[in-house]
């Protein structure tokens, strides 16, 4: 992901390293943000309302879902519940992430949690596999993406309609591509393959039969359960193949 191999010692150096790491994702988020703002404007939201939503919610997925089901007058309850549902995966993400923030104070952890969007979280989790995350590095990672999301969504709501249909340019595939790249960063061999297969099947089946965003939670739980079950299989199996899996992380 990032190419620097040494741990920079100054906070400024760490923040710079974080910013360099997130830069490609910042570039990718700009068209998506413009698109979000444009669609929100079509639904009747003012640029100020779009800016407020991006600044306080800061969650691309649930913001798109919210705009998709937005009606005038809007239902506060439906919007709140929808955000809760789309973001239930954050509970698992936070549980996985929290133990990696040893260098963070209690207050810093609660600030860090606010910026826990999928992309920031995935990049930080990947980094935590190799070294300890520092608050400065995380700030360098999170703030550029936050600024880019706020600026691009607000701009989109102002320039709006001129953009046209995003699928004409294949822009609807920008974020799936980002996510596929991030998934590849966590590849550790067949064990990961089993987790991905379980998540895919559970998510697609749930998405087909259940209304709403339950498929994300269902897929996440299926993958995590598969990983937990795989531990049992390993305990019964001879240890040799396990060693092969561990050395397989050579991308």
């Amino acid at each position: 992901m990032s190419d620097e191999t040494h741990q920079t010692s100054t906070p400024f150096g760490q923040a710079t390293a974080g910013a360099v790491t997130i830069l490609p994702i910042v570039v990718a988020v700009l068209p998506i943000g413009l698109l979000f703002g444009a669609v929100a404007a079509q639904k009747g939201l003012s640029p100020l309302e779009v800016a407020l939503m991006s600044a306080t919610v800061f969650a691309g997925g649930s913001q798109f879902v919210a705009i998709d089901i937005w009606q005038d007058p809007v239902s506060i309850g439906v919007m709140t519940f929808s955000a809760l549902l789309v973001n239930i995966r954050h509970i698992l993400m936070g549980a996985s992430f929290a133990p990696k923030l040893k260098r963070f104070s209690r207050g810093q952890k609660y600030v860090a949690a606010f910026f826990l969007v999928d992309e920031i979280w995935a990049v930080a989790e990947r980094r935590a596999m190799d070294r300890t995350i520092t608050p400065a590095w995380y700030a360098g990672l999170a703030l550029p993406l936050y600024a880019a999301w706020l600026a691009s969504t607000t701009t989109g709501s102002i320039v709006g309609a001129a953009l046209g249909d995003p699928s004409r340019y294949g822009l609807d595939f920008v974020f799936p591509a980002v996510f596929i790249f991030l998934v590849a960063g966590f590849w550790k061999g067949p064990k990961t393959g089993a987790v991905l297969a379980a998540s895919t099947i559970a998510a697609v089946v749930t998405h087909t039969f259940v209304e709403g965003a339950w498929y994300i939670a269902a897929g996440a739980l299926a993958g995590v359960a598969t990983a937990a079950f795989a531990t049992d299989v390993e305990t019964l199996a001879p240890p040799a193949p396990e060693a092969a899996f561990d050395s397989g992380d050579t991308r």
Binding site: L92, P99, A122, V195, S199, A218, G223, V224, A227, T231
Partner: peptide
């Protein structure tokens, strides 16, 4: 140990679940 192993699978599982319907359905 088991919770730790399960939590290690959270990143790929969550990311895959988000894109699975777009990707395969």
């Amino acid at each position: 140990k088991r919770i730790e192993t399960a939590l290690q699978a959270v990143p790929p599982a969550v990311l895959m679940s988000v894109i699975a319907p777009t990707a395969f359905a």
